[in-house]
């Protein structure tokens, strides 16, 4: 696995998160509301609401992770360490999703932190 294929895999993980969240929303709000212009706001609850928060968080993480990887690849500065950190990020974010969905306290925050620290270290290595 290269840094680029890890980035593509993370993109697919975000897409899976979105699909899970959309499936839950469809059950809670109905397909009619989702297809409408959604002019009145509705609230979702339970696991679907958690998946929605996980999705928002994953998009922010993606916006930070993608430039780090692209910088490293474009400047040809990928190393064993950067590959390891990218893998750590992907695994942490793959753990983050079920940890949030099932409300596993501690694990979700731990996974978030591993992903965040990995991203920060990737920027240091890019410099």
């Amino acid at each position: 696995m290269t840094e680029l294929s890890i980035l593509a895999s993370y993109g697919l993980l975000v897409i899976v998160t979105l699909l899970l969240q959309a499936t839950g929303s469809m059950q809670q709000l109905g397909i009619g509301y989702l297809l409408s212009s959604r002019d009145d706001s509705h609230t979702i609850t339970g696991m679907t609401a958690r998946l929605n928060r996980a999705l928002d968080n994953s998009v922010v993480a993606m916006a930070l992770f993608a430039p780090a990887i692209l910088l490293l690849v474009v400047t040809d500065s990928t190393t064993v360490q950067t590959l390891l950190l990218a893998k750590a990020f992907l695994i942490a974010r793959a753990v983050y999703l079920p940890a949030y969905a099932f409300g596993i306290i501690g694990l979700r925050s731990l996974a978030w932190t591993v992903g965040f620290v990995s991203t920060a270290l990737l920027y240091f290595l890019a410099l």
Partner: peptide
């Protein structure tokens, strides 16, 4: 757009 950026650049 974030997802599309990743897709295009990868």
């Amino acid at each position: 757009l974030i997802l599309f950026t990743i897709a295009c650049l990868v």
